[in-house]
Simulated assay, not measured.
Amino acid sequence: MMQATTINRESAAGANPASDAQNLRGAGNDMEMIKAASSLTRDLNAANPVIYWADFVASALTGYAALFAAIFAPSIWLCLLAAALSILALYRAGSFIHELTHIKRRDVPGFHLAWNIMAGIPLMIPSFMYEGVHNQHHMPKRYGTVQDPEYLPLALMKPYTVPLFVLVAALGPIGLLIRYALLAPLSLAIPPLRRIVVERYSGLVINPEFRRRMPEGEERSRWIALEIATSIWAIGLLTLTATGIIPLAAFLTFLGIASGTMVINQVRTLVAHLWENDGGEMNATQQYLDSVNVPPPATLPALWAPVGLRYHALHHLLPGVPYHNLGEAHRRLIGALPDASSYHGANYAGLPGLVKQLVGSTFKRGQ
């Protein structure tokens, strides 16, 4: 998130690419899987506006109601309980930013604007932070390379990078306040600073080498409008807190809950891929096998990987399928493809095993 980690790719220098070449390199394109994925899911590409609106609005309202409950709770235990509910609900609401990058505005009219008003601006993650960035993660020639804003070879890096990767996310809300309350206004008067802010601090990315281009045309107009609104919100929040209108405890509770959503998302990101690519280009099957599905019967992924994120590998195979249809797409492919199909190779049982695999890989390859 917003250059969410300062971990450098050079941390993977201890890995031996020759002897530790990942198994993914041996995978050829599984054309049977690719053709089946396309033919079996053609009727699942349409977004259902009712589902989008109901799910998002319910998540956002629940999150903010629980936030106020945490602020005014009469005991620490009720505060913690309400805060936990708020974190999960606002995390789910915020996760719709991923859907915004894939659905067309005409498919769910007004949804982009509503999301920004109800989640993007209050949580200081307006949609321009992801739109125009996430699509590069899906480009076949960029996935897993130094040009991919959402990829780091974590499995090949030093063991300390895993906890550091998560801990840095906890500071995300502070970084966002600095970006919108301080850097954004200053950058209007200092052109060199503006370029730095746009290139380095205007994307929810994990690759510190990624540099974003300056926005143009309609993208620039939307960007500026959302950035101004978010800056006003951030400045207002700090001003009202400094003047005592918003109690410091309430402000810190908000920051804590926002931090919680970012930590969960960062943990989810840890297991969204196997992170075993050393920078070379990968074919479609290799990209799929480097990604992760955590399908049923596992139940907890519905909380830590909501809005279809539990089907991350399937999403890379079928990026046009909306989140609410990914479960059905998965069931069809599981039923149609033989056990020898590559499709089964990206399905995992749950979070603990994936984290253990990643940490074990860092100790083997990143020493």
Rank of each mutant, 00 (worst) to 15 (best):
R200A: 07
I196N: 01
E209Y: 12
L188Y: 15
R194M: 14
E218F: 02
I206W: 11
L188F: 14
R194D: 09
L204A: 09
P215D: 09
N207D: 09
G217N: 02
G203K: 01
I190H: 10
A189P: 06
E216H: 15
P208Y: 00
S202K: 12
P191W: 05
V198E: 13
I196P: 01
P215L: 13
G203E: 04
R211H: 08
S202N: 15
I190T: 08
G217D: 04
R211W: 01
E218N: 02
R213T: 11
Y201V: 06
R213P: 07
P208F: 01
R212G: 03
P191Q: 04
Y201K: 08
E218W: 03
R213E: 14
F210H: 04
L204E: 11
R195C: 00
E199N: 06
R195L: 00
I196C: 02
Y201A: 07
E216K: 15
P215T: 05
P192F: 12
E218M: 02
M214H: 13
R213V: 11
M214D: 13
I196Q: 00
R200L: 08
P192C: 12
N207W: 07
R211E: 03
P215M: 13
V205Q: 14
I206G: 13
L193R: 08
I196F: 04
V205W: 11
G203L: 04
R212C: 05
G203D: 02
P208C: 04
V197W: 06
R195N: 01
L204W: 13
E219T: 10
R212A: 05
E209A: 11
E216R: 15
Y201E: 00
R195E: 00
E218H: 00
G203T: 04
V198D: 10
L204S: 09
L193E: 09
R212H: 04
P208G: 01
E218P: 00
A189G: 10
R200Q: 09
A189N: 06
G203I: 04
L193F: 13
R194V: 09
